Simulated scan of single mutants.
Amino acid sequence: MKSLITIRNIAGGALMACLVLGSCKKDKDYRLTSASANPAPGTIDPGEAPANAMITLTGSGLGDIRTIVFDSGQVNAELNPAFNTDNAVLFRVPLDAYPASQNIVFTNGLGKQFSVPFKVLGFAVISDVSNYNFVAGDVITLTGKNLADVTEVTLVEDATATVTIVSKTATTLTIKMPATTKTRSALYITNGAGTITTTQEFVNMAYVFVIFAEGYGDDVQNGSWGPAGISTTVAKSGTMSFQAGYNKGNWSADGFASWTKGIAYNADYKYLSFWVKGGSEDLTFYITGDKRAGGYGNADVSAPILVPAKVWTYFKISLTSLDLWNKGTPFNQLGWWVKGPDSQDETLYFDDVILVK
């Protein structure tokens, strides 16, 4: 019995040794070509392309390419040996390649390197806009990147409306807005990399309910507790804004009133939007309305907004969440109040206070 166990152990050890030795054998090389000591690149086609585009390098001595690196950011491209011959290399622009003019560096199995110039195209990116509201003919500047080669801008909701490109740089795109019957729309922006849809949506002022724009809307007036009224000192659109004064420690509510007609509920309207320029410091204000659940005044804290100091900030708030007609229709008062202010008197400026369809 002991002999049998010994034989089994010897056999098992021999088998393990065979497996270990077998695993040490060099893997079979499935490459279809061999490396050249003198690779000679010719033409790369296309010479510029966006991420994930297929490109082809032709030439001679191009076999056995091991790495392809886009040198802006040292981004590696994947390579399938089946698409590499002595005369050509096919590969895709990496998804994370940096949009820029750069070199693509190739290294073959002998360690020989060569490079070819190439331009990675980037889709347009929009990070900021000068205004979200427009009437036909208004000029708006978009800020972002990859904008120098933009060739076309159109309204997503109205392909027949021509958006005119006024000027462009790598980081800015200035456009003239068209006449359209659409109430709001994002933009299609096309450049060498392709077409993107902006996350920003632009509102046609011809089809909004105006509470305040270039003056008060129909039957709307100043309904503020503190010092307030129309100002020409600053404006986001046009020449006028609504100046709202908040005296230190007063906890006042400033805004608008419509006592005769009121502002009736209309299911077509989806948002309350407005621009506001902040005071001397960042402050939290609260939207208040007489037909909201909390009523008008300085007690309802259910709709806060943070207003940054000294800059214009755009707000677009769902009317479903704001619930301006909770207690019935029409509502007659809409405003903004602040706890304090504690440090000093503050002045805010409101512009383009509108209900958007």
Rank of each mutant, 00 (worst) to 15 (best):
I7R: 10
I7A: 14
A11E: 12
G12R: 09
L21P: 04
K26A: 13
D27Y: 06
K28M: 11
D29A: 10
R31D: 11
L32E: 11
P50A: 15
N52Y: 09
A53F: 08
S60P: 03
G63L: 04
I65S: 00
V69P: 02
A77Q: 10
A77I: 10
A82E: 13
V93L: 06
V93N: 01
P94T: 10
A97M: 08
A100S: 15
Q102H: 03
I104K: 03
V105L: 15
N108G: 08
G109K: 03
Q113Y: 01
V116I: 14
P117E: 11
K119Q: 13
V120P: 00
V120I: 14
A124M: 04
V129A: 15
N133F: 11
V135D: 08
V139S: 10
L142C: 07
T143Y: 15
T151I: 14
E152P: 00
E152A: 12
V153G: 01
E157R: 12
D158V: 06
D158I: 07
A161M: 05
S167V: 06
K168T: 12
T169V: 07
L173S: 02
I175Q: 00
K176T: 12
A179W: 03
T180Y: 05
T181L: 12
K182I: 11
T183E: 12
T183K: 13
Y188M: 05
Y188Q: 05
G194P: 09
T195N: 07
V203S: 00
N204R: 05
M205T: 04
V208C: 09
F212I: 03
G215T: 08
D219K: 13
G223S: 10
T232E: 14
A235Y: 03
S241T: 09
Q243W: 02
K248Y: 06
G249N: 15
W251S: 15
S252N: 12
F256L: 14
F256T: 00
W259G: 04
T260R: 13
K261Y: 09
A264D: 12
Y265Q: 01
D268C: 01
Y269P: 01
F274M: 13
V276F: 01
S280F: 11
L283S: 04
L283F: 07
T284M: 08
F285W: 13
I287A: 02
I287N: 01
T288D: 09
D290S: 10
A293F: 05
G294V: 04
G297V: 01
A299F: 11
D300K: 03
V301W: 00
S302E: 11
P304G: 07
I305K: 08
I305V: 15
P308H: 08
W312Q: 09
K316A: 10
L319D: 04
L319S: 07
L322K: 03
G328K: 06
G328R: 07
F331P: 05
F331E: 02
N332F: 12
W336C: 06
V338N: 02
S343N: 12
S343K: 14
S343V: 15
Q344T: 11
Q344W: 11
D345C: 02
T347I: 15
L348V: 06
Y349S: 08
F350Y: 15
K357L: 04
K357D: 01
